[in-house]
Design a protein around this nucleic acid. Structure first.
Lengths: 354, 354
DNA sequence: CTGAAAGCGCTTACAG
DNA sequence: CTGAAAGCGCTTACAG
C-alpha cells in the first residue's frame, strides 16, 4: 500500500472517455459476459451466488471480472431488484460520543455483511427526522435503524408503510412485533440514584440538559427511587432544554448550589454535564464527594480522568449497535429473530466522586 | 408535528401491495404524467426545472405530484442520468469532534442545495479509504470531499479516473488544479510554539499521538520555531502512534516529566491530549502554568472549562466544511471557482494555561 | 415549448 | 444448470 503525503497530481481525464450515444464507458455486466463466454444472467447469478452455477463458469466469470475490473452498478441493481445494499441509521447527534460508538459498532457488523451504512443526523428534531426518512426510504434501503421510539406520527407511518425492516436503538419495549435493542433508561437512572442513597446522601439533585425522551426516562428512575425513600423534592430538579456540554454542566452546577446550598449529591443526566460540574466544583472550592457527591451517565471519554474520577453508568452502546445490526441482518434475510426485544442492561461504575 | 413517546404500533403491511408482474406499487413518473394529462418527459422536465415548460403545465404537474404523493426514484434517476444527488465525505474518525463539526457544516450547505451527504470513516487506514472510495464511487456521487492529501496511489487513481469533482479538506497546497480548503497546519504549530517562546519558555516539549500527516505538519512548525531560537532538542518530542485520548494525554504528560523533569512548557498536538495533561498535572501537583505551561490544538469542547483554561489554536473547521461544500457545489455545476486553494487561517486562543 | 423512442445496467419471471 | 425476453423508473438525444 504505497503512501505519499504530497499533494495529488492534477486530475487526469477519465480513463475511458464516453463512447458513442449514451454509453457511459464503464465496464458492464454484459462486457463480463462476453469476456467469459456466458450469458449476462449467468454472470449476474455467479456474482450473487443466487442459484447454483457450474463451478467452471463461476471461475470464468470471476476471472473476467478481475481482468476487466468490473464493479456492479448499485443504481441498476437497485432499480431492477427494488432493493439496495444500504442500511440507513438515524441518530440524534454526532457530537455525543455515545452515538459515535453506536455507529462504529453498526458499521463493523454491516460492512463485512456487504451493507453500506448511511448515517443520518436528526438533531433531535422530528421534522428533520421525517425529511431524512423520506429521503432515505426513497433509496429503498435494505434496513433501517432508528434511535428510540419518539417520533412524529408521519415518521411512524413512513417507516411502517415502507415495509423496510426496522430496529430501534437504545430503548426497549415489550410491545409485540417491535424490534429493539437497548436497556431500561429508567432502571439505570433508578440504580444510580439508589447508589447515592446507599452512600448516605439525602438531598440529591437531578441536573439535566437536552431533555430528550431517554433523559426524561432517567429522571423517572430518579424520582421513583427518591419517592420510595420519602426524599423526593421537585425543587431539586434542574432541567435545561439546551444542548448538553461541559460548559453548561458547570453553569448548572453553580446555579444549583446557589438555589439549593444544602445539596449533598447531584445526578447529572450525561457525563459531559457531570465533567463540567466536577470542574466547576474545583473552581468553586466545593469538595467532591465530601460536600457534594457527583454522578454521571454513559461513562464517556475522560470520565475516568476527572478529579475525582466520575461515578457513572456504563451504557453498552457498542454492544447495542452490534446486536441491533445483527438483528436487522436477520430480518433483512427474512429469518426469524429469537426475541424482538433485546435488553443489554447497564453497569454501575463506582469511582471516587461518590 | 404530533409527537408521541410511546412505542410504535406493530408494522402495518405496505399501503400499496405489489401489483401484478414486477410492478412495485409505488407511484411513478408515468402515473403523475397520466394524472396531469401530459407526457412523462414533461413531468421530468417540470420537476427538474431543466427546460422551460409552460407555467400552466408545471402547475398541473405539481398538483398531480402532491395529490399522488410522488417521490422520484433516485436509483432510476441515477441510472438514466449517470449521476446522483450524493456527495461522499471521507473523514478519518468520528470520535474527534473536529470532524463532527466539519461534517455538520458540510451537511448544512449541501442539504438545502438538494444533495445528500454520505459519511465514510477511514480510521486513518489507507486500505479502508480505498475500499470506501471504491464503494462510494460506484454510486457515481455528484462530488467527493476527502480529508487531507495523504492517501494510497490506488486511491488517488480511483478519484482521478472517476472524473468526480473532489475538494480536499483541512490542508492546503499550491499545486495547480487541486481543490482544497483548510489552513497551514505547520504555520499554526509554529505560531503556538512562538507564543510559548514569547512567554519566556525555553524547554518546550511536543507531545503527540495518532501521528497522522497533519499532526506531523504541526511538529514541523514546532521544530522550525525552536530551531530558529536555537532551542530545538529532539529528546523533548514524545510521539506516540496510539489513538488520541484524555487518558493517553495524562499518561504521556507523566512520562514526559519523568524523562525530562526540567520541561517548562508542553505543546500537545490535540486538545484531548492537553486536557488529559492538565488533569494529570492537577493529580501530580504540577503547577500550570507556573512550573509547566500547557498548550493544545483545535479548541475542542471543554478546553475553556479546564483548570486552568487551556491555551490552544482554534481551527476553523466549521468554515472549512461550509466553504469546501460551496466550492464543491460550484465544481459540480461546472462553474469556475475563484481559487482552487482556500486558506482560512487559524486563531491563537490565549487562556490561563500558558 | 412538447413528445415518441431508445436506453441506462441490472434482475425477475418464465422456459427448458 | 442455463438463457432469451421483458421490465425496473427514470433521462438523453433527436425531432418538430
Amino acid at each position: 500500500m504505497p503512501r505519499d503525503a504530497s499533494p495529488p497530481a492534477p486530475p487526469a481525464p477519465p480513463l475511458a472517455p464516453a463512447r458513442s450515444g449514451r454509453a457511459t464507458g464503464r465496464v458492464t455486466l454484459a462486457d463480463v459476459a462476453r469476456a467469459a463466454g456466458v450469458s449476462p444472467i449467468t454472470v449476474s447469478r455467479a456474482l450473487r451466488r443466487e442459484r447454483s452455477v457450474a463451478p467452471e463458469l463461476v471461475a470464468r466469470v470471476e476471472a473476467a471480472v478481475r481482468q476487466l475490473g468490473y464493479v456492479p452498478d448499485p443504481a441498476a441493481r437497485a432499480l431492477a431488484s427494488a432493493r439496495s445494499d444500504h442500511v440507513a441509521v438515524l441518530v440524534p447527534l454526532l457530537s455525543n460520543n455515545l452515538f459515535v460508538d453506536l455507529l462504529e459498532a453498526v458499521h463493523q457488523v454491516l460492512w463485512p455483511a456487504g451493507f453500506q451504512t448511511l448515517i443520518g443526523v436528526t438533531h433531535y428534531d422530528p421534522a428533520e427526522e421525517e425529511q431524512l426518512l423520506q429521503a432515505y426510504l426513497a433509496h429503498r434501503p435494505a434496513g433501517l435503524l432508528v434511535t428510540g421510539f419518539d417520533r412524529s406520527e408521519a415518521a411512524r407511518r413512513l417507516i411502517a408503510s415502507s415495509g423496510v425492516p426496522c430496529v430501534h436503538l437504545m430503548e426497549i419495549t415489550s410491545a409485540p412485533a417491535v424490534h429493539c435493542v437497548g436497556f431500561s433508561q429508567a432502571e439505570a437512572g433508578h440504580a444510580i440514584t439508589q447508589h447515592l442513597l446507599a452512600r448516605g446522601r439525602r438531598r440529591i439533585a437531578f441536573v439535566a440538559a437536552q431533555l430528550d425522551p431517554r433523559v426524561m426516562q432517567r429522571a423517572e428512575g430518579y424520582r421513583r427511587a427518591l419517592r420510595a425513600a420519602g426524599l423526593y423534592d421537585p425543587a431539586r430538579e434542574l432541567l435545561n432544554p439546551q444542548r448538553s456540554s461541559m460548559a453548561l454542566g458547570g453553569a448548572l452546577f453553580a446555579e444549583l448550589l446557589r438555589r439549593q446550598p444544602d445539596t449533598d449529591a447531584v445526578f447529572f443526566c450525561n457525563d459531559d454535564l457531570a465533567q463540567g460540574g466536577l470542574l466547576a466544583a474545583l473552581r468553586l472550592g466545593v469538595a467532591v464527594p465530601a460536600q457534594v457527591a457527583v454522578a454521571g451517565f454513559n461513562d464517556l471519554n475522560g470520565s475516568d480522568q476527572m478529579l475525582p474520577p466520575l461515578t457513572t453508568v456504563r451504557t453498552p452502546r457498542s454492544r447495542i449497535g452490534a446486536e441491533a445490526a445483527r438483528m436487522l441482518l436477520t430480518l433483512v434475510r427474512g429469518e426469524p429473530v429469537r426475541a424482538a426485544s433485546l435488553d443489554l442492561g447497564y453497569e454501575l461504575v463506582t469511582r471516587e466522586s461518590t
